[in-house]
Design a protein around this nucleic acid. Structure first.
Lengths: 191, 191
DNA sequence: ATAGCTGTGTGACCTACATCACATTCGAAA
DNA sequence: TTTCGAATGTGATGTAGGTCACACAGCTAT
């Protein structure tokens, strides 16, 4: 299935949209390929677009003053990723996005999204629901972080995304869970 | 300023809307008063509405198996609060909402919000942006929870919402920060 | 093949915070 | 004004997870 079909299928889970309208919408997306390790959004620079993942795996992450990394999101196919705080506000990025594997994405510029939302009520509806889901997921993760210990969160993550176990280096999983790589290593080895 | 004017002012920060349209929108809201301690959403029951705070302070919270409480949000005037996970999905609530002080809110039923979003493109736009902001705030809090220690998060909270210090009992602030009330007490005494 | 880098395991030790127990203060109701 | 419960302070002690240090395995590029 090509990028266009994947996006179409993704969108039509939330709204229905006639072919010609979708063609118009799709014309605003740009297909981009990245190599493993390449950076898509760099902390400290302006953010112009958000990205819909077609293939591969990206991460959005924050690096604190002690150079410790925290991962906000692993972005798998059909997920959206960006620094939304920076994108919506027009400020410089505080988080970065890069590629854990070779990746193909569809990029959508901020002003194109806003233009499309204005043109088509249904597109606005789609993006409202996409963010709704993101918001709910983020709240869930907040609760889990406060409520559950590291082992519990680790099992939760692997249940939700079994692919991650083989796809993503363990120290990145630790950075997502909010624990050190050593603690993660001990979690699944010593009992 | 009455409830209608407060809502109008709140909405027109994001969209512009003619008087007659706003009147129609407003007619779907129901003004409700609660006493301190009253419950607005009860865990385990179905959720039908979301709430726009006119006056007072509410909290949305989760209680785990050990009866430990975690606060997701303090809802102050012009904030929205509900169990959005339950509201959007139609499932029973996993979090509760109650009143820290006497409170006045405008309730908006889920199907009325969806109806209004369908009727007026601008209303859909408004709700998209409201959720955008919530999503960004939630991500920020996630990062802070992973990145910063308790003292840092405490100061962050008080900077952002100085009113909370006098308005809200300390053990609730602790439940928001994800620490025990004892630890919070030690934070600002034995400094 | 060798060098070098990235990822991972593991021991020793440290620390922020939790938990438990009890004392104290304060505000609201009787 | 007394009483009672909710909120808060504080000491003693426990523990999950962090940090540091070092070992070693497996790629990749020369």
């Amino acid at each position: 299935m090509d990028a266009k079909a994947i996006l179409r299928e993704h969108i039509t889970k939330t709204i229905s949209i006639p072919d010609d309208q979708f063609d118009h919408v799709f014309s605003h997306f740009k297909l981009q390929s990245y190599k493993k390790g390449q950076t898509v959004i760099t902390e400290g620079t302006f953010v112009h677009a958000e990205y819909f993942v077609i293939d591969g795996c990206l991460k959005s992450f924050f690096i604190n003053d002690n150079l410790k990394m925290f991962i906000l999101q692993f972005a798998m196919p059909t997920w959206w990723v960006s620094d939304y705080s920076a994108l919506y506000s027009g400020n410089k990025a505080t988080i970065s996005v890069d590629c854990i594997t070779d990746a193909t994405v569809l990029s959508l510029a901020n002003e194109d999204r806003e233009k499309l939302c204005k043109e088509f009520h249904a597109v606005e509806h789609f993006f409202r629901w996409r963010t709704n889901k993101g918001y709910v997921a983020s709240q869930k993760r907040l609760l889990s972080l406060m409520n559950n210990d590291a082992r519990h969160r680790y099992e939760e993550l692997l249940n939700l995304y079994p692919q991650l176990y083989n796809l993503v280096p363990k120290h990145l999983i630790a950075a997502y869970l909010g624990i050190s790589r050593e603690t993660l290593s001990r979690l699944y080895n010593n009992s």
